[in-house]
């Protein structure tokens, strides 16, 4: 079996572009946007999210035969919150500044519907290996959108990337101004809206139109 036809490969790559959790499944927008003013925070948030999604899918999937149906949501919540606490403590220990900037948004990964959604719809019905790949793929797809939004916002909003000045000084002297609007909340909504439009209109044209 070649790499591309293996179900693991499919579970991993499909959510990155085709079935992106933010753009197509409409999940997990909640905490995504507030951290996208700078690339640094967006990347850390994306990584934490990928870690939590991948391992919560793995754990929920390995327990799927032992979880009673009625209390499955509580069990899932506890798995997810334990992982989030772990992430939060690690961030506080090693990346204190960024963890301060992310403030409550790391904690909000718990109620991020993308994590819950994958545990509910995928991990409960599939073996652990596949679920892990699915969680990893969804986390990466999520990070991709986050980084994309952050790239646009930081570049146009403060003229820098990763905190380093990109737009040259001469341009400012020639009258160029940073778009302060990009740093405000409404810009994030509009950029996501345009991303969704782009993805649906360009990437899915052949299948979507029929």
């Amino acid at each position: 079996m070649s790499l591309q036809s293996s179900p693991y490969y499919k579970a991993l790559t499909e959510p990155i572009l085709g079935n992106n959790p933010i753009n197509i499944q409409m999940l997990g927008i909640c905490s995504a946007l507030a951290v996208t003013v700078q690339l640094n925070t967006a990347i850390v948030m994306g990584l934490s999210m990928t870690f939590v999604t991948a391992f919560s899918s793995l754990i929920v999937s390995s327990m799927r035969r032992h979880i009673p149906r009625n209390i499955r949501i509580i069990v899932e919540l506890f798995v997810i919150s334990s992982l989030v606490i772990l992430t939060d403590q690690v961030l506080k220990a090693f990346l204190y500044d960024i963890s301060k900037q992310l403030s409550v948004f790391v904690g909000l990964i718990i109620t991020n519907c993308a994590v819950m959604g994958r545990a509910e719809t995928y991990a409960l019905g599939n073996p652990p290996g596949l679920s892990f790949c699915d969680g990893l793929g969804n986390g990466l797809g999520y990070s991709l959108v986050l980084v994309g939004v952050a790239f646009i916002r930081e570049l146009f909003g403060s003229g820098s990337l990763f905190g380093l000045q990109i737009v040259p000084e001469t341009l400012y002297q020639a009258g160029y101004r940073d778009m302060g609007f990009m740093l405000l909340a409404p810009a994030a909504f509009i950029i996501i809206g345009l991303f969704v439009w782009f993805q649906k209109a360009v990437l899915q044209k052949d299948e979507g139109k029929g």
Partner: peptide
């Protein structure tokens, strides 16, 4: 609306405009 924008896409953009209003 143009193809791909209806539903979710336009909801996000209108939310952005509304957020501007609240500011």
């Amino acid at each position: 609306l143009p193809y791909g924008l209806e539903g979710y896409g336009i909801t996000m953009i209108v939310t952005g405009l509304m957020a501007m209003g609240f500011m």
